[in-house]
Amino acid sequence: MLAVAAFAGVVVVFSAWWFGPDLFGRHEPGNERVVPATVTMGASCSEPDAEETVRFELDGETRNGTLGACGHDREDQVEIAVPVGAGSGLIDVRIAATTRGSSDLRRPVGLGLLALSCAGGGMYAFLVARGPRQRAVLI
């Protein structure tokens, strides 16, 4: 009985691993273009909601954008992600190596939690199937 529960848990974890990062959420690629940029006005990291200003080339045109980051000096070079349908004026951009609202720990943490829940469910099934135990009374 315990072997069946363990096998079912392994099948569930393997299936989750096989489906890949899409199971735990993934940033949609193709909605942004990665371009090099130059920081024109840095921001101190002691400021709340620090934003820096960057200058970059987009479709042969020099553009400016606001970057939600801090700690860069003027004229520092950074790689940024620019939304594909960016309009005119200041564009909200982000550092290219980051993703909004997600982290690279999603998959290992998600798989770890899934494995723990499988183990907990298997142990519960084992205890229910085993039933209550009789206590030995010593006389």
Rank of each mutant, 00 (worst) to 15 (best):
V12W: 08
F14S: 15
A16V: 01
W17V: 15
W18V: 07
F19E: 14
P21N: 01
N31R: 13
A37Q: 07
M41L: 13
C45M: 07
C45D: 09
S46H: 11
S46R: 09
D49Y: 15
D49T: 08
A50C: 06
A50E: 06
E51S: 05
L58S: 09
G60C: 11
E61C: 00
G65W: 01
L67R: 05
L67E: 11
G68S: 10
G68L: 01
G68D: 13
G68Q: 14
G68Y: 06
G68T: 02
A69V: 01
D73Y: 04
R74M: 14
R74T: 13
V78C: 09
E79Y: 01
I80G: 04
V84C: 00
G85T: 09
G85K: 15
G85L: 10
G87D: 12
S88P: 09
T98W: 00
S102A: 09
S102Q: 13
L105E: 12
R106E: 02
V109T: 09
L113I: 13
A115Q: 06
A115G: 11
C118W: 05
G122N: 06
M123C: 09
A125I: 03
A125R: 05
L127S: 12
V128G: 04
A129M: 06
R130W: 03
P132C: 02
P132A: 06
R133V: 08
